[in-house]
Amino acid sequence: MRKLSELTAIDTATISRIINGKRKANPEHLQKFADCLGVPIAELFVAAGYPIEQKEEKLQSDIHTSVDMIKNFLESSNLYDKKFSITSVEQQLDNYGQYSQTEEGKKSILESFEEKLQKTGSIGPFINQLKELFERFLQGKGTPGELALIGSSLLYFIISVDVIPDYIFPIGYLDDAIAVQIVMGLLFKKEIDLQ
């Protein structure tokens, strides 16, 4: 348990409670276990009692709820005059995915990710997901298609001018969080499809 704790950065006591059935592993724990043990995450979700279909449906529902909230906020605040949609985020991710496979795109990710993290304060759930994606990108863990997806979310975060520019406070990073959730959902779906 101590070794697993070191490898996953999850507290030994937490791992012990999960193993002894006193606590349920959350999706973040399962992702770290999957990465550390080289096991498909879908298997761990099933083993932990998470219904796979419902997780994907919940993710889509959460994204759409978030998009609706962002649209309402943008309309009421007069901070941003363009329409916000998932399609606009997905189109930007496609562009960044292609760019992330170029030498210039890879260099941009490697040189700018840490600096951008510092500017955001490096905290929050989508920041933790970005850090995990960055590690996967650094290690080349994944197929070329998966690495393009991962690269697209990293570039979306790094480049300040995206669907909602980062400098529009306080909403500038909301679309970045949506982009990360879209990529995480697509990666999860790919893992499910492989089984």
Rank of each mutant, 00 (worst) to 15 (best):
I127C: 05
I109V: 14
S76T: 15
R136E: 15
I109Q: 01
I127T: 10
G97K: 03
L110Q: 02
S108N: 10
G145R: 11
D62V: 01
F73R: 07
L37P: 12
G97H: 06
V46T: 10
S112D: 09
K82P: 05
E111L: 01
I159L: 13
P165R: 02
F33K: 02
K71E: 13
E75A: 13
A48I: 00
K119D: 11
E104G: 00
E75P: 03
Q118K: 10
D68W: 00
P144Q: 12
I123E: 13
Q118M: 12
R136K: 12
A47Q: 11
I41Q: 04
D166H: 11
G121A: 09
I127R: 04
A148V: 09
E43Y: 09
V46Q: 10
I164N: 03
I127K: 02
G38E: 14
L154F: 04
L149A: 06
E104K: 01
K131N: 08
E146M: 10
A47C: 09
Q98I: 13
P51A: 06
T102C: 08
T102P: 05
L110N: 01
T65P: 09
S153L: 13
F134L: 06
S152K: 00
E90Y: 00
K119M: 13
V39G: 07
S66Y: 01
I109T: 03
F126Q: 05
G140H: 06
M69P: 05
F137I: 04
E135Y: 10
A48Y: 02
L37W: 12
Q92K: 14
I127Q: 03
Y50E: 05
Y96M: 06
Q129R: 06
A148R: 11
K83T: 12
S152Q: 02
L147T: 05
M69L: 09
S88P: 07
D35F: 14
Q98D: 10
K107M: 14
F33N: 07
V161F: 12
Q91Y: 06
Q91V: 06
V163F: 12
L154M: 11
V89D: 04
V161T: 13
Q92A: 09
D162K: 06
S85Y: 06
A48G: 05
I86W: 02
K106N: 12
E56F: 05
N128M: 08
E28V: 07
G124D: 05
L117P: 11
T120V: 04
G38D: 15
Y50N: 03
E135L: 12
E90F: 00
G121C: 12
D35A: 15
V39A: 07
F33T: 00
K55A: 12
I63L: 12
M69K: 10
G121I: 11
E43C: 08
D81Q: 15
E103T: 02
N128Y: 13
L155T: 02
Y96P: 03
S61K: 14
E146N: 07
G105E: 03
